[in-house]
Design a protein around this nucleic acid. Structure first.
Lengths: 255, 255
DNA sequence: GTAATAGTGTCTTTAAGACATTATGGA
DNA sequence: TCCATAATGTCTTAAAGACACTATTAC
């Protein structure tokens, strides 16, 4: 336990001496998730410089001196999507602090999960030549090196995906993937895309509609063949009792 | 959106220029939770210097240059408990990055939750005069200023407590508060202390024992009046189906 | 004996899971 | 007419929640 700059608890609690603490670069990485074309996808940008040149990476950036990490994540999303204000859900995922996670210098990064409905085509430029929404399943089942992400971003993405797959079991998070109003079958397809399974229609509807104050009815105005009833979010952010995720969680649907 | 050092995404993805990024001090705060004397408690240390002099605070410290935040949290716990190796459960909670959360300078802190069985009396010294395990309920119901914590530690503690109250519903986390082996009634008292409710004995036992591979039987060796059966952790880290927390979550039990 | 605690059994209500059936409108 | 999709109804099995009861030992 002999560390060169091993700053014990007491220094933090009883006073500090400017310069005694190790400084780090503080950044954020953003996992923007969406269901596009019936598939669970993530926004990636291809690196065009070393290290990990030409690999796919999560969008990210440094946190400014007057920003919180959440502010910085929101700004990164605005820049990448081109939207004036990021309209979706944004939450903190986890902080990655391995000293060697970036070979250039010490960068501590607080990753965030963003969720929005139908994000526009990503912006390129400013040093990024290629950005795209990539299928999560393609990344998970990647046997080539095509989708081996830069830095520790594979780990970050896996953590984000698992967080969301778990969270939609017991919360209203899945509604973030849809516009308002939405139909129950649309919501079911969100679950099916995220979990990679197919769900029974009637059981699914019963669970959603019976969960207290999760969704409220909002008429029936769709122009579909057989128009489904419309719903909007209710005041509850919990799905109780939870909807249980089938055991298989990847590559088990229509392939 | 005019920020003085507003480092856009492209700088991070396409290269960097040393010195262009804002440096921060990186720290960890630790919420060490335990059930002691039948009460849900947290380890606090009283500050003996400004700012927030004489207020209770969470133990914490800077993250060393070769440490992860988790390493630093483990080290802080070793120092505070006096144990050679922290024997309990340790997980990341959340990162707090408000620019003004410490009035002295910018300190970004990744908070952690520690859980252990029967932590020893905390160590004092090294600039800390008083450290104690304080009842969560006393903090939550504090009408005086006695337990107004330093910095943003009230928020961190509230987040940690809610995380654990929620997590024991669906995971094996509650077992971390007990030694091995343990009895079902002991485990029930852990739930009762954390949630601040009383639970039905038979229903509780049925849920725990029926949850697949959560606990395994390990004989009956207790010296209690009517010795209860002993159990050890099973291989499952999930409690499925979850055990639902009663609606009231504070100050509703024996007071 | 009484009190305290551990454990068992059971009954009712509720939800889950599977599946059959009806309704609507387009190709 | 056939097909795709939305919605309803129902039947069986399993779990939740409430509660009654027995067993063991300290006092």
């Amino acid at each position: 336990m002999d560390r060169s700059v091993d700053q014990p608890l007491q220094d933090f609690l009883s006073g500090y001496h400017p310069g005694d603490y190790p400084a780090v670069a503080y950044a954020t990485d953003v996992v923007l998730l969406a269901v596009r074309d019936g598939e669970f996808k993530v926004l990636l940008a291809r690196r065009n410089d070393h290290p990990d040149k030409a690999r796919w990476a999560l969008p990210g950036g440094f946190v400014g001196p007057s920003e919180t990490a959440l502010d910085a994540a929101r700004r990164v999303l605005q820049e990448k999507t081109g939207l004036a204000a990021f309209p979706g859900h944004l939450e903190q995922l986890c902080t990655y602090s391995a000293p060697d996670r970036d070979p250039r210098m010490r960068v501590v990064s607080t990753a965030h999960i963003g969720i929005m409905y139908q994000p526009p085509e990503p912006r390129v430029g400013g040093g990024v030549d290629e950005a795209a929404y990539v299928s999560i399943r393609d990344i998970e089942n990647d046997s080539s090196e095509e989708y081996r992400l830069a830095f520790d971003h594979a780990r970050i993405l896996a953590d984000a995906v698992e967080r969301i797959r778990s969270k939609i079991e017991y919360s209203a998070t899945a509604l973030e993937f849809l516009p308002q109003p939405f139909t129950i079958p649309e919501l079911r397809r969100v679950y099916e895309a995220i979990w990679g399974v197919s769900l029974h229609k009637s059981d699914f509807k019963r669970k959603i509609v019976n969960s207290a104050h999760l969704v409220d009815r909002a008429g029936r105005l769709s122009t579909d063949p057989n128009p489904a009833e419309l719903y909007v979010r209710g005041k509850s952010i919990q799905l109780q009792p939870p909807i249980s995720r089938p055991v298989v969680s990847r590559s088990s649907r229509s392939d």
